[in-house]
Simulated assay, not measured.
Amino acid sequence: MSSEPPVRGWIDPNFPNPMGPGDATIIIYGYTPSIVVAILGIVLFALAGVLHIWQLFKYRSWYFSTMIVGIAFEIVGYVFRALSAKVDPYRVTYFVVQYFFIVVAPVFFAAAIYTILSLLINATGRHHAPLPPKAILWIFITCDVVATVVQILGAALIGIAESNRKDPTTPNNILLAGLAFQAFTFLLFIILLAAFIARARKVMFEVVTKWFYLAFIAAVVLFYLRVCFRLAETAEGLYGELNTHEVYFGCLEFMPVVVAVWLLAIWHPGRCVPRGTSVMRSDV
């Protein structure tokens, strides 16, 4: 009798495994990725990228260039997801590359979010902020980089474990640790943002319109929703409900990020947020 464990996971009966040197015995996604979702991702992020690039140069808002990098990462990620959908869903390389780019992209989006808060602090008065703008950037960007490196390591080890038919529990726990740390630090950022808004509420609309604030807050919540989804998905394990049904990916990973990116394209900080300290109040 063979000592190898039985194959566990999704095998598409309509897509025979090519059994190439780079193919896992199962589809690591937990399902066969939809080509529709992949194409929508490529198109919507590409269009948003054009709009962001145009405003980046028009308003010379170079500080917001991390959004462009994040969008480029999303496009690459969905291109490889499309390859998984139509060429070979069992290919470990396709899975790891799409996971890498789709997971890393929000780090650049988060950096842009932190930059916006720094601009708002400078525009309304630094005395409204619990932390200096530069400290916000350094602390939270560093935390995001650490969390993302741990996630990438965990995802890569999951791919290796599945391709070798090994137990992926330990790699999944590594991935879970990275996501938990990211969720915790982003929650701290949301608390910091709420504290700033509470302190600056008397002057905030003198500098920036309420629509920009609403769009910014919505984008922050959507990005956090995405982090929470990834955390819950990983906590369930590789064969959990969230990990084996693409509808959750579409609604809780794809859609929140797309909407957030478009919100920040429509209410672009280069157009909506003034540079420097525009409001000084002696009564605060």
Rank of each mutant, 00 (worst) to 15 (best):
T148Q: 02
D167I: 04
T148C: 08
V145Q: 01
I158D: 10
I141W: 04
V145R: 00
I141K: 07
I152P: 00
I158A: 14
A161P: 12
S163R: 12
C143S: 12
I139N: 08
V146N: 05
G159P: 06
V150C: 05
G159W: 03
A161I: 07
V146Q: 04
L157H: 10
A156D: 08
I139W: 08
V149Y: 14
T148K: 00
K166Q: 14
A156P: 04
N164T: 06
I141Y: 05
F140N: 10
I139R: 12
P168T: 12
A156L: 15
N164D: 14
L153P: 00
Q151N: 14
A155V: 03
D144K: 09
N164A: 08
I158E: 11
T148G: 01
T170K: 06
S163N: 10
T169S: 15
L157Q: 13
K166C: 05
V150H: 06
N164R: 14
I160M: 09
A155Y: 01
T169M: 10
L153A: 10
T142S: 07
N164H: 13
P171G: 10
A155M: 06
T170C: 11
F140R: 07
T148E: 01
K166Y: 09
V145M: 05
T142D: 02
E162Q: 04
I141N: 09
Q151I: 14
T170Y: 03
N164C: 09
